[in-house]
Computed example of a mutant assay.
Amino acid sequence: MRNVTGVAERTAPASAIPGPGSEPASPHPVPEAGPAGRPDRAVVRDALGVGVAVGLSGFAFGVTSAGAGLSLLQTCALSLLVFTGASQFALVGALAAGGNPFTAAAGAFFLGTRNAFYGLRLSQLLALPRPVRPLAAHWVIDETAAVSLAQPDRRAARVGFTVTGLTLYVLWNLTTLLGALGAEAVGDTDAWGLDAAGPAVFLALLAPMLRTATERAVAGVAVVLGLGFLPVLPAGVPVLVAALAAPVVLWCEGRRAGRTAKGADR
Rank of each mutant, 00 (worst) to 15 (best):
E32G: 15
R41E: 10
L91S: 09
Q88S: 08
L73P: 00
E32D: 14
G34A: 09
E32W: 07
T64E: 02
P18M: 08
V4N: 06
A53P: 08
G55L: 02
S26Y: 10
T64C: 02
G67I: 03
V4I: 15
E32L: 12
A42V: 14
V52C: 04
A60Y: 04
V50P: 00
C76H: 01
P31K: 10
V92N: 05
P39Q: 15
V44Q: 04
A16K: 01
R10H: 12
A77W: 05
P39T: 13
S79Q: 03
N3K: 08
A8T: 07
A16M: 08
S87I: 07
A53C: 10
F61E: 01
V92W: 01
L81K: 05
P13F: 07
V7W: 07
P13V: 11
V82R: 01
L48Y: 06
G49L: 13
A53E: 08
V54G: 00
A14L: 15
L81W: 02
D40N: 13
G69C: 13
S26M: 04
C76P: 00
G69D: 12
E9L: 14
E32K: 06
F83D: 01
V63E: 08
D40T: 14
E23L: 14
G37F: 04
F61S: 03
V50C: 04
R38E: 09
P13E: 11
G55A: 04
D46W: 03
A16Q: 13
R38F: 09
A68G: 03
P24D: 14
G19I: 02
E9F: 03
A47R: 04
G6K: 06
S65Q: 02
E32Q: 08
A53K: 05
G69A: 11
A25D: 09
F59W: 12
A68L: 08
I17F: 07
L81R: 00
P39W: 15
P24Y: 12
L72I: 06
G55I: 03
D46V: 10
S71K: 06
L80W: 02
A36W: 01
R45W: 13
A25H: 11
P24K: 15
S79V: 05
L81I: 10
R41G: 11
P27A: 07
F83R: 01
D40P: 05
A8E: 10
G58E: 00
V50S: 02
L72M: 04
N3Y: 14
P39R: 15
V7G: 03
P27M: 11
R45I: 10
P35R: 13
L80T: 05
T11H: 13
V30I: 15
R2Y: 09
V50K: 03
A53S: 15
A53V: 09
T84P: 00
T11E: 07
E23Y: 06
S22Y: 04
G55N: 05
G62M: 02
I17M: 04
V52L: 13
L80E: 00
E23N: 06
T64R: 01
V44I: 15
E9S: 09
A53N: 06
I17H: 09
A25K: 11
V52T: 07
G55C: 01
